[in-house]
Structures are given as C-alpha cells and as structure tokens.
Amino acid sequence: MNHGSPDFQFLGLWFNAANLLMITVASLIVFLIAVFATRRLAMKPTGMQNFLEWVLDFVKGIINSTMDWRDGGRFHVLGLTLIMYIFVSNMLGLPFALVVNEKLWWKSPTADPMITLTLAVMILGLTHYYGVKLRGPKAYGGTFFSPMKFLFPLKIIEEFANTLTLGLRLYGNIYAGELLLSLLAAGLAHQGALGLIAAAPLTLVWQAFSIFVGTIQAYIFTMLTMVYMSHKVSSDH
C-alpha cells in the first residue's frame, strides 16, 4: 500500500524512476496506437481509423463547445494528444501494480501529483502564451481587469487556483482509485480465504468504476484545457 518510490538523484535533480518508466510507457502506447491506426489511411475508413476519427471528432466537439473553431482549430492536436495520453495513463495502473523491493514500479503516471501539475502548468502556460499571441499584449493584460478593476487580485488568484485544481483533480481521482485497488488486492485479499472471496467482487467493481473515472477525468482535463484556453483567446469573453 504505502510503498516507496525508486528515487535517484541526477544532475542535482531528483527523479522517480517509476515515473520515468510509466511516462515513457504511456507515451509509447499512445504513439503506437495512433501510428498503427493511421498507417493505412483510406477515404473509406475502416477499423482503427474509424476509432481515431471518432476521437478526432470528439475533441473537435469539445473545442467547438468552448470557442470558435477559427480560434480553437490550432488546439486540436493538443487536445487530441492530451486526451489520449491522459486516458492511457489513467488506464495503466488499473490492471496491476508492480512492486519490486518495496518500491512501486508500475502505476499510472497520473497518480503522481508532480506529473499532473506539470501538465496543468504547461496548459496554463500555453493559455497565457496564446492569449498574448492571438489578442496582443494589451488585450491580454486587459483581461485581468475586466469586468471590474478591483477584481485584479482575484484574477491572479484564479490563475493559480486553476492550475492547482486542474492538476490535483486528475491526481486525486487516479491516486485514490489506485490506492483503494491496492488496499483491496494487497490488503483484503491477503486476510485469509474469506478476505479473498470478499475482495474479488469488490476489486472487479472498483476497477470498472476506475475505468469510468479515468475516462471522465481525461475528458474533464481536456475540456477544462479548452475552457481556460477560450478565456484567454476568445475576444467575446
């Protein structure tokens, strides 16, 4: 349950080897799925191409629900990569966890707050970047004082709150899911035969629920990314 992490220090920075592994695995899976699905592209889509086109349309729908496609079209690729990466990351920790020498190696990369906060900071950074790029520094600065000037401190707080909630929401959901799974699988299931019988259906149900939560969280993260983005780049806000 409360396993350590395989940390090491390199160039003065602390790394968690498990995170490095899982980030790489998740990225690789996303890359392979996407590339294999688009190897044989056809005008009449079949199989995996259909699936990816559906994802494409889905993300397009998310963007369209928050901003004009003229502004939002450029975030299509970002949204696609985000939703795929986060979804795959959320799923990775569900089937099993791997503990070697009391160190947790296999888990969801999104079950680590540093990872989710990195993504959140990156997203918020991008919103500011595109806010300046698309609307100019003056209009961008103006958003901090609208609709009222005295709201400026609140606007500043909002930016930090957005970052924190965006990252921690994802982390909390996934971490809690995996924690309970590990409690069931490594704790309850080891309390004799009765515990094993009790743990099996509970684990099954909780895994199913975690799949649901992981999917929803990937959707919410992408959705909020586009909402924050639209606040910065859309001129009608």
Partner: peptide, 22 residues
Amino acid sequence: GDMFFQLIVFIVLLALLKKFAW
C-alpha cells in the same frame, strides 16, 4: 526531474503524433 521529463516527453509526443498520426 520528473516534471522536466514529463514536459519534454509530452512535447516530443505531441510533435511526433502531429507528424505521424494527427
């Protein structure tokens, strides 16, 4: 370190997917 790694990997993934898939 994880943060930097995640950031770099995500950007690389973004670029690769844009080129090869999206």
